[in-house]
Design a protein around this nucleic acid. Structure first.
Lengths: 233, 233
DNA sequence: GTGACATATAAGTCTGACTTTTTGGCTCAG
DNA sequence: CTGAGCCAAAAAGTCAGACTTATATGTCAC
């Protein structure tokens, strides 16, 4: 899904990024480029490129005569897919998952409403196909296959909204859904009510019924939130 | 507000970033690091750092034997504040402003509802202060002072929601509000109804009335959307 | 046409020297 | 003792050049 270790500087980021987002270096910590370069056995040029990327994510700040200081969590670019992935892989995964689910609950209903107005025929067809796929794999411990269609469903909704900001949240939703399936309730079959809701959303979008699509999607995301409350109160 | 030209590579980004987001180099265009370095009169190391940052924003992709290719708009990290700023400064400013306003209309009502549940006493006080400041400068062509309080108001709401994803949208909302004031309706005094709504939202949050805070905020953002429809149909 | 192979190309990497900014401490006058 | 101003060290920033590596493309035999 992502692009691990593209070049040496990418390799460095793959360990330094998670370390910082995991709070291994608390905010205010000072790193020295030269030391880091030695530590990772790379040249200063490579290390500098890695630091530049971290700086563009507002994870660190590089100042002369001081060094590379870790910035407080509040400054981080938490919408950067890379940062999201790093944080989801780290210790505060539950907290992160909750934040993202709340975000979903705000975005997706509105996106579904817009999708009902703007979806093309092809998108409607794809949506229906996804919903049917979910139904087909909703029983008998076929969670992996179910997940694929679930992710695709929400991606189509977000894309069909016609809003590029919504569309770009497809990756985030995918991470959340994948994370939920793989780390929480891997064993049980999905809630039948949720499956039905997805089918109904597809219907509403196909019929251009924006309020209904929005309301139904809100039910879906509310369900996701409650599920989270049950598992991690 | 932002941090222009930190170091040579930052200077390069300040002109290359806007150029790419403005579509000056269409998707698929191939740039050569060496040529760019020559063009900007900087060393290759500096140029490489700039390219790395653009790459982390998914604006370009660097591949061996090929060069630096501009990625399609759909791949861009449109939530990166830097990218947002570049795009707002460019030609598709109206389109961008609409996308962001739709995003606001999804996020802010939910954030206000959460704020009503989680806001601290200090945040409630700050919110009321902002609302009063808006009232105080709502007449007599004091748009600049009004704007300051308006921006602060929405920042507090987003921060008080307790959700870090929402909180980080403060900058985006600030950009939208500032852009609207400076480029659209600089002359007229703000809509009195909108001012009243802000005061009422502050009330609702103070009283912990989440549904009311959400409903009122939805009215505010709906108003912003309609305003946009009138100005750019 | 198809496959293996050679070649040119542009990014990637490393090294070492040099510059610039900034800070923390030091001196010295008041 | 205090404060202003100056100095020197420290770390990032910049540059130039040599070398490595991956890979797209063209060539040639089959």
């Amino acid at each position: 899904m992502s692009t691990p270790g593209r070049g040496l500087h990418g390799r460095v980021l793959d360990t330094l990024g998670p370390a910082i987002t995991a709070g291994e270096y608390p905010p205010g910590s000072v790193l020295r480029t030269d030391e880091l370069a030695q530590h990772f056995q790379v040249s200063r040029s490579v290390m500098r490129e890695a630091v530049r990327v971290l700086e563009s994510m507002h994870l660190v700040e590089s100042r002369r005569r001081v060094g590379v200081t870790v910035r407080p969590k509040a400054a981080w670019n938490v919408y950067d897919p890379q940062v999201i992935r790093w944080r989801l892989a780290g210790a505060d995964r539950p907290h992160q998952l909750r934040s993202l689910t709340v975000l979903r609950s705000a975005i997706e209903p509105v996106a579904a409403g817009l999708a009902a107005r703007h979806a093309t025929a092809a998108q409607c067809a794809e949506l229906t196909e996804c919903a049917l796929g979910m139904v087909a794999h909703s029983r008998g411990h076929e969670l992996e296959k179910y997940l694929v269609h679930d992710v695709a469903f929400h991606r189509v909704i977000l894309a069909a909204s016609g809003n590029e900001m919504f569309a770009r949240l497809g990756d985030v939703v995918a991470e959340v859904l994948t994370g939920r399936t793989h780390h929480e309730v891997m064993f049980e079959d999905p809630d039948p009510a949720a499956v039905t809701l997805h089918v109904q959303v597809a219907e509403a979008v196909r019929e251009g019924d924006a309020p209904r699509a929005e309301r139904l999607t809100r039910e879906i995301t509310m369900g996701a939130l409650q599920e989270l409350d049950v598992l991690a109160p």
